[in-house]
Design a protein around this nucleic acid. Structure first.
Lengths: 151, 151
DNA sequence: GTATCTGCAAATGCTTTGCACACCC
DNA sequence: GGGTGTGCAAAGCATTTGCAGATAC
């Protein structure tokens, strides 16, 4: 996981501002989900988020988790990642931009940034007369541990 | 679309070899699907493939299309692409390796290769002590046409 | 003949939606 | 108080699977 750019409190402040800006109302569930994602530091599935919140005594429903995740993604508080066929996983957006290395054997997810690749992606888009909005890059690998297990 | 590396007949020959190698039996549906993907030159959804085959009088079922697509992907005759939430799309693998530029506005898919990025991806994997098996890179853009429509 | 392949329909798994009640402002 | 949020259950949608008949070898 990379450096946090922002404290949890600061993110929650921005969340409240965003809620007001959209004419919405506060809810503890939204803050809970941000909190869980911030503290976990990993890439969690909606089910994992729901059960994490449930351990803290709340009876949060999975449908609310999905609804809130959509909102938080739209407002750029979190980002989604499709590591495999099992559905989306989410992580807090308050980190540096990064891409993912995914081990095909154990599923481990590592983050990385290569400034040179980032630069070249913008160049490629321009060469196609297009305006780069975002990108999605996943490197599928066999990690060091799994190379030892399965030589 | 990039240059074909192989004729349709040559691909179908390889398909028959692969079928024998796996102890399976021939079927016109498998050849039909390869044929449709080869001729279309684009990225088709399972539904699109099924309806394309149906126009040619056959009553192919969607479940067979899915089953055959899995087989063809496993055997590297085709490759899958997830352009958006609407599900997977497939294209013939008998082309040079390439990645995709996807317009967020009109959905147009363009193919590209940047040898320098390819090289850097291998380097990044090595720096993480991992063995690069494959990658997935999508550049999400607003294409030239859509920039004019929506300034 | 026997094992694979197919079409159909039902099942699955993730995600979304409709609705009635609960809660925030 | 009126609108927004939630939980629940049901619906959606892409994909997978079980099964009986069809087909390839």
């Amino acid at each position: 996981m990379q450096n946090r750019l922002e404290t949890l409190d600061s993110i929650l402040d921005r969340l409240r501002t965003s809620i007001r800006k959209n004419g919405l109302k506060n809810s503890k569930q939204r803050e809970e989900i941000i909190s869980v994602l911030y503290k976990s530091g990993t890439h969690l599935s909606p089910e994992e988020i729901a059960s994490e919140i449930k351990t803290k005594d709340k009876t949060t429903s999975i449908s609310s988790v999905y609804r809130i995740l959509s909102f938080l993604e739209k407002e750029n508080f979190i980002t989604a990642l499709e590591a495999d066929k099992s559905g989306r996983r989410y992580e807090i957006a308050a980190k540096d931009h990064h891409d993912h290395i995914i081990c095909l054997h154990c599923g481990e997810i590592t983050e990385f940034v290569d400034p040179e690749i980032e630069r070249l992606q913008i160049k490629v888009a321009h060469e196609h007369n297009a305006n780069l909005i975002s990108h999605n890059m996943k490197l599928f690998v066999i990690c060091q541990k799994c190379q030892k297990i399965k030589p």
